[in-house]
């Protein structure tokens, strides 16, 4: 389980996260939604230590990440998988080498075992015959799937996804969402997804946290979110004329 307590973060005079507290459960896909510039990605980077928090606690199974030594942090990070917005695959390595990389770095597996594991992970994300291609030779959706395969190769306890659907068509987006959901259930991991895609919220949102004005504004799930009377959240969800009309018809 991952818990955030009173997280605060400033960039100069600008407050990007105000007193954010939340619990994210194991075996569930936890979504953080909000408008662009609301501080979602900064919050995610604070959780994994890529950005230093000004104050607050980031508790991984009760242990504060911020107070850990560099070695302890490095050890914990071997239990973390992360899917970046652009995939962040290593350009100089093939798809197979990308997936094998964390295994080669942190396990004592033989080359055959690593290959077997890489093939399993690639098959798990429905990728075949791409092992020897470079990231520049595959599509955006495939890059995301390779990044998921790399993230799950070491069987992480925590999976962080930063806007996994950005730049993808609706069909591929739903495929990626379903994949994240399936992997979360299959490996019983704590998954945190940053998104502003309402399709993702409805598809996989076991828990949904809405950030507005740099703080937690609403918390619930994909069943309750459509019936909320929270004005800001409704403005966010029903931003298009089509959805507003649909809601009015349903009402």
């Amino acid at each position: 389980m991952l818990e955030l307590k009173n997280i605060n973060k400033h960039f100069g005079d600008r407050h990007v996260t105000k007193d954010f507290s939340c619990k994210f459960d194991q075996g569930k896909t936890n979504l953080i939604i909000g408008e662009s510039g609301s501080g979602k990605t900064v919050l995610l980077k604070c959780m994994v230590g890529l950005t230093q928090v000004d104050s607050g606690e980031v508790l991984y199974d009760g242990k504060d990440f911020i107070k850990m030594s560099i070695r302890e942090k490095q050890h914990l990070r071997t239990e973390i998988g992360m899917l970046f917005q652009g995939g962040a695959l290593f350009d100089s390595k093939t798809v197979e080498e990308n997936v094998i990389f964390p295994l080669a770095m942190f396990t004592d597996m033989t080359q055959e075992q690593m290959l077997e594991r890489a093939n399993f992970c690639l098959e798990r994300v429905n990728l075949k015959d791409v092992n020897h291609l470079y990231p520049s030779e595959i599509s955006g959706g495939m890059k995301k799937r390779v990044a998921i395969a790399r993230a799950i190769s070491t069987s992480p306890k925590y999976l962080f996804c930063d806007e996994p659907n950005s730049g993808l068509d609706p069909k591929t987006s739903i495929l990626i969402d379903k994949l994240i959901k399936e992997i979360t259930l299959e490996f019983n991991i704590t998954t945190i997804v940053i998104t502003h895609d309402m399709n993702s919220v409805m598809e996989i949102g076991d828990k949904v946290v809405y950030i507005c004005n740099q703080q937690k504004w609403w918390e619930g799930d994909n069943k309750t979110i459509l019936h909320t009377d929270n004005k800001e959240l409704n403005d966010f969800i029903y931003v298009s004329k089509f959805l507003r009309e649909l809601k009015e018809k349903q009402a």
């Binding site: 994994v48 230590g49 890529l50 942090k73 490095q74 050890h75 914990l76 990070r77 071997t78 973390i80 998988g81 992360m82 970046f84 917005q85 652009g86 962040a88 695959l89 290593f90 350009d91 990389f101 964390p102 770095m105 942190f106 962080f160």
Partner: peptide, 10 residues
């Protein structure tokens, strides 16, 4: 973000 990816892996 490839360097961030390395850091996240530990």
């Amino acid at each position: 973000e490839q360097i961030d990816a390395l850091e996240i892996m530990g």
